[in-house]
Amino acid sequence: MKHAAVLYTCIGLMGAAAITGFVDYTQASNAGTLSNLYKEELPTTGSTLISEKEIDLEDYSRAALEEQMVNDQQEETIAEKPKPKKPKKTVPPPPPPPKQKKTVTVEVVEDVPVAPPAEPEVIVEKVAPTPSEPPAPVVEVKAEEPPTPATEEVKSTRITPRIFSRAPLPPKVNAVKKKKRS
């Protein structure tokens, strides 16, 4: 008797749910709101489970950092020496004061690689070690930037346990950022 009551209650509830659902569905379809029940664009709120974050690769690239460092160094040099300097010289002047010139005199030892200087355009003059040898040609070495990939693929979503919830997943975006060279 008790079980029968429970069963009939359950069946009654199902019937009520079906009727109520059908009535509400019919009302919504008559009102024309049935197609507007779901938002097309997902809102981005604080509780969004997967935050889509784009990483600006340019800011963190090594080339940008080196460029910034070079700029800083140039600013410091300008602050120290207010006199205008000659842009560059392939042939150094006869009495070269090393502090005032932008040329760096390096005695080249063979089998030792020349380290790239910090400044972008630096003239490295090869000085002859002995007077008997013919004068070595002037070698111009430019500070090279490290190779940076043109495009880098960033996956904007991570798989976390929170992804296993009722929240709709965001559209998957493979953020491809092209490195801008300024």
Binding site: T33, Y38, P43, R166, P168
Partner: peptide, 23 residues
């Protein structure tokens, strides 16, 4: 799934599932 269901019982509407069905 049970663990991820628990936060819904603060009855906040600040869930993307609920906001998607705001109407």
């Amino acid at each position: 799934l049970i663990w991820n269901t628990i936060p819904y019982f603060n009855f906040s509407k600040d869930f993307s599932f609920i906001q998607e069905r705001a109407v």
